[in-house]
Nucleic acid binder design. Sequence first.
DNA 1: CAGTCATAGGAACGACCGTACACAACGACG
DNA 2: CGTCGTTGTGTACGGTCGTTCCTATGACTG
Lengths: 184, 184
Amino acid sequence: MSAPARRARRHDPGRRDRLVDTALDVIAEQGVTAATHRAIARAADVPLGSLTYHFASLTELLAAAFTRHVDTVAERFDERMRAAPDRAAALEVLVEHLTGDLLGSPRDLVLAVELYVAAARDPALRAVTQDWMARSRRSLERHLDPVTARELDALVEGLVLHSALSTDPMTPDQIRSALTRLAG
Amino acid sequence: MSAPARRARRHDPGRRDRLVDTALDVIAEQGVTAATHRAIARAADVPLGSLTYHFASLTELLAAAFTRHVDTVAERFDERMRAAPDRAAALEVLVEHLTGDLLGSPRDLVLAVELYVAAARDPALRAVTQDWMARSRRSLERHLDPVTARELDALVEGLVLHSALSTDPMTPDQIRSALTRLAG
DNA sequence: CAGTCATAGGAACGACCGTACACAACGACG
DNA sequence: CGTCGTTGTGTACGGTCGTTCCTATGACTG
C-alpha cells in the first residue's frame, strides 16, 4: 500500500537548482504565503531538512526563486527590445510583453503580484523587485527617453495589478491604447 | 508588582468599533501578516477572546478594517471631485489626492499596499479592493470619460506601488506631469 | 581499500497561530 | 430578591511553522 515511492536519489546533484524551480511552482500555484519549507519539500519530494541544508533561510530560498524568475522575464524582454528598430516597434514590443507574457500567462501574472506581496512584506526581497524595475526601465530606455520610460514602467505595474485584482480586465487593445497614449 | 493595569471596563460599548480602528493601526504599523488576533488584542488592551466574540473570524475583522479605511479615503476623494468645476480642476484634485493623501502620508501608502497584499491572498478581501477601484473610477468619471478614467486609475495604482517599493520615488511634479500627460 | 567529508535524511523543539468553549460578571425583569 | 439571557474573559486544543541537530550514507582522495 504505502511505501511512498521516495524517488529522491541519495546522491542528487542539481537538487539545489530543482528546489529553486519547485519553490517557484509552489508560489505560482498557491501563493507566497503557502510557500513554506514543508510545502516546497513535499512538492520537490525531498526531506524537510534538505531545504535548510541548501538555503540558510526560507527568505533566501524565496529570493533565489524570484531572482531566477525575474532574470528570465527581464532578459526575454530586453532581448526583444534590443531587436526593435525604432520607437514604434519598441512600443509594440512593450504591448506584446505586457499582454502576452505578463497578462497572457496566468502563471507570470500571479508571480508578478506575488513578488509585489513578498517585497512589501520582506525587505530582503525588495531588492529583487527594485532590480526588476531598474532593468525594465533600462530596456525601455533603449528607445525612449528616461521620463517616458519611468512613466510607462509605473503604468505597466498598475495594469498588472489591475488585471490581477479586477473583474473584467482590460482587453489587449485597451492596454495598447493606454500605453501608446502615454508614450505618444 | 504586576496587576497589569487592565483598563478594559467590563461593560464596554463601542469596543467593536475600537477593535476595527486598532486593527487598522496594527496593519499600518506592522503589516497584514502581523495583524493576528493576539497582536490586535494586545494593541487594543482587550482579552483575546473578545476578538472572536465580536468578529466571527479574523478575515471578517480585517475586512471591516479595510472597508472603513477605503470608505474614508474614497469619500474624501469623491467629495473633492464633486467640488471640482471642470476637467482641469479635477486633474488637479487627482494630483493632490495622490501626492498628498496616498503618497504623502506613510500610513495611507502602507495601508494601500497592504490592502493589495491582503486582496491577493484572500478572496474575501478582494471585494474591498474592487469596491475601492470602482468608486475611484466613478469619482473620476465625474469629469473624465470612462476610458481615460480607467487608464488613470491603473496609472495611479502603478504609481502607488512604485512609490512603495522603489528607492528614489517620483516627485509630485513628476507625478503631475505623468497624470496630465495620460489625461491630456 | 581505508578514511574523510560534503550531502542526505528524519525527528524533535519551541513558538505562534485561529478558534472553541466553559465559566464569570452583569443588567433587565419578574 | 432571584432568575435568566447577554456580554465579557481566560484557558486550552490542535495544528503549522522555521529551524536545529544528530545520524546515515556514499563519492571521492590518498
